[in-house]
Every structure is written in structure tokens, then in C-alpha cells.
């Protein structure tokens, strides 16, 4: 049984987006983690369509989203406006923020307490 909250990783680089879940899965086997990396043609950039797919394919209905740079946030927000799912977006350092959230979700920590811990990792 997967956890109530899932995680979505968005990066400009397909390999970065693909790689981070591997790190998180080590500590969060029961958290659904999906990712969106690069443009539709797998070039460097981000894609609102790919982000939508990452939202939809995530097993959870409530999501915590983490991203790398500027346009990733804009495309995330566009995808959030199109999605039915409840998505929370965090302006934290990507790897550290996502890792912290994964660890705490696996340990059934409440979202408000997770968010408090993420606050310290906010850099954007």
C-alpha cells in the first residue's frame, strides 16, 4: 500500500529527473515517485505536458513537487492549473528537499511538519 502523498521531480535534464528517484527510493519504498525531465523531444528544458503525465502516472492523489530552475517552476504551475490532483510546490534545493520529503513521508510524518522542515531548505 503506497502512501497518501506522492513525489514528483522536475528537471531540465532527462537524466537528472530520472536519477533522483533512485536516490529517494532507497529511503521511501512506499512513496510513489514520478518524474518529468527535458522537453518533449528530450532536449534540455521542461515540458508542461511531461509534468502532467508525471502527475497522472503517480499513484497518489496528493503530490509534493520539486524542481531545479526557473522555467521548471512555470511549467509546473501550468500543469498544476490543468491537473485535478492536489499539488504542493516547494522552492527548496531539489535533491535535499525531495530527499527530506521522501524520508519523512515514509515515516508517516504529517505534511505540516514536513513543510516546516522543508522551509529551512528553501533557496528560490
Amino acid at each position: 500500500m503506497k502512501k497518501e502523498y506522492g513525489i514528483v521531480i522536475v528537471s531540465h535534464v532527462p537524466e537528472v529527473a530520472q536519477g533522483i528517484p533512485k536516490l529517494l527510493e532507497q529511503v521511501a519504498k512506499n512513496v510513489s515517485i514520478t518524474f518529468a525531465g527535458g522537453t518533449d523531444d528530450n532536449e534540455i528544458g521542461t515540458s508542461a505536458n511531461k509534468i502532467m503525465e508525471a502527475f497522472e502516472s503517480n499513484e497518489a492523489k496528493k503530490l509534493l513537487a520539486f524542481y531545479d530552475l526557473g522555467s521548471a517552476k512555470m511549467n509546473l504551475e501550468l500543469a498544476m492549473e490543468m491537473s485535478e490532483k492536489k499539488v504542493n510546490l516547494y522552492d527548496t534545493a531539489l535533491v535535499e528537499g525531495a530527499y527530506t520529503a521522501a524520508t519523512l513521508l515514509e515515516a508517516d510524518v504529517l505534511l505540516k511538519d514536513i513543510e516546516q522542515q522543508l522551509e529551512a531548505l528553501k533557496i528560490k
Binding site: 522537453t39 518533449d40 523531444d41 532536449e43 534540455i44 528544458g45 521542461t46 515540458s47 508542461a48 505536458n49 526557473g70 522555467s71 512555470m74 511549467n75 504551475e77 501550468l78
Partner: peptide
């Protein structure tokens, strides 16, 4: 524009 541009210009011009 939203789906093809890729950089920050995509979501900005698209919006």
C-alpha cells in the same frame, strides 16, 4: 508555444 518552446519563454509567451 507551451508544448514546443522548452525554455522559460514557452510558459511565458504561452500564458
Amino acid at each position: 508555444l507551451i508544448s514546443k518552446v522548452g525554455g522559460a519563454a514557452g510558459p511565458l509567451y504561452g500564458t
